[in-house]
Amino acid sequence: MINDIVAIFHDYWLLLLIGQYPNGPLGGLANTLILSALSIALAFPLSILLALARLSKWPFLRWPVTVLVYVTRGVPLLMLILWSYFLVPLLTGADVPSFVTMLTTLVVYQAAFLSEVVRAGIVALGHGQMEAAKALGHGYFGAMRFVILPQALYNMIPSILSTFVSTIKDTTLGYVINVPDLTFAASQVNNQLLTQPFQVFLILAVIYYAICWSLTHVAYRLERRITRRRAGLNGVRAATVIAPVKIISEQL
């Protein structure tokens, strides 16, 4: 069994890593990482804008976003992917690459979920911080940028992280519209071997686990650094002497 896995790795590592590139489109792990990174990088700022719109006092900003969030939350991601895959070319006549379809759908979907996390973080801070910022003469966006969001986002790191991790895992659904990602490459391998699905998909699971674990670890380190700094433990080596700093994501 171990030998099978090593053999698969040995024979197909390049396909799993970059797909059929340079003879075909870039695929495999490289494409999964690119898709994940782009999705997160675009969904995160979008989610902050959506959260601010949801909290806005103007109904024409609040209502469309509220509808978007409710619809997105109520429909499975796979439905959305298939919709955009079949409907967008039908409606616009444009030939949209499946990678772009997948990326756009994933960004909208995850941004909607993430916006609720961000909104909760902002609301949980209470009025005092916003009032203090206003009293000092900060405008709404200044207060958000320098006072509210740095605290709200920090407090929500565990939930934000969960959404990031699920974004990475959701890239696998690109398989159904032929996005050449890691899952797609693994299933190509499986189709060639035919007899070793367990081994192939175990490799796949381990790779996804490693990616998600790395992200969790990075976020944990980041959170720990911020927590230590705010507790004034900067440069203090023997942190155990002082009361141990509480890290929220440890409870995940």
Partner: peptide, 15 residues
């Protein structure tokens, strides 16, 4: 507002 100093009961420092 920036020219009116305000001190709150609960301090409201930026943590």
């Amino acid at each position: 507002r920036s020219r009116i100093g305000f001190v709150f009961q609960n301090f409201n420092l930026f943590p």
